[in-house]
């Protein structure tokens, strides 16, 4: 990582946790977790609370669908770490071929129309937020997305427009596919808080 203090931990407790979790899990603790442990007096707890609510709180979207949305935002932001991390979680709740088809081209992937229309909204939100307007939301509603679903999806996209940026700005180490898979299991058990 570009900031060594973030990578190793800024307190005895966090450094110890990083070592223990790495030893018990058998993988290098991913940099996303190291960021979550760092500088707890700043944004970490509040950002963690929003992320947990958006990704694991009550929603008409499944966890797998929300992880797919996260992977798509990562794809649109060219964030290798987050594509890998959230694809690995998404495929535990959604058919891997469907996840891969979305990452290739969600417009032709075998997914429900409301999910396709929601991803279209999220793509504009991510890539051209200045152009996002009521017509984009209306298109999602017309495809069967509820207002609550679109709000929930927008929260996921807002959060991953943040995460993908710090993953790249800090130059996260890219885990192997096996490490992504092991980390996915941990993320499904413990969530984001």
């Amino acid at each position: 990582m570009r900031l060594p203090d973030v990578e190793r931990g800024d307190t005895l407790r966090s450094r110890t946790l990083i070592r223990i979790i790495s030893a018990v899990s058998g993988i290098r603790l991913p940099d996303a977790a190291r960021v979550a442990f760092y500088h707890k007096g700043f944004v970490g707890p509040m950002f963690g609370a929003w992320t947990q609510a958006a990704m694991r709180g009550p929603s008409e979207w499944s966890i797998g669908e929300r992880e797919l949305m996260a992977a798509m935002v990562a794809h649109w932001n060219s964030c290798t770490f987050c594509i890998g991390a959230h694809r690995a979680i998404a495929v535990r709740g959604t058919d891997p071929q469907t996840v891969n088809a979305c990452l290739t081209d969600y417009r032709t992937a075998p997914i429900p129309e409301r999910l396709r229309a929601t991803l279209s909204f999220l793509e504009t939100m991510t890539r051209e937020p200045d152009k996002l307007d009521a017509t984009h939301a209306q298109a999602a509603f017309s495809a069967g997305t509820s207002q609550a679903q679109l709000v929930d999806a927008a929260a996921v996209a807002a959060i991953f427009n943040i995460v993908t940026r710090y993953a790249d700005a800090l130059d996260f180490t890219i885990p192997t596919e096996e490490e992504f898979d092991k980390a996915a299991g941990m993320m499904l058990k413990r969530g984001y808080s």
């Binding site: 307007d133 679109l150 709000v151 927008a154 996209a157 427009n161």
Partner: peptide
């Protein structure tokens, strides 16, 4: 800023 844009659109 993207969240705000989404809220306005919705």
């Amino acid at each position: 800023s993207r969240w705000d844009a989404a809220v306005r659109a919705i």
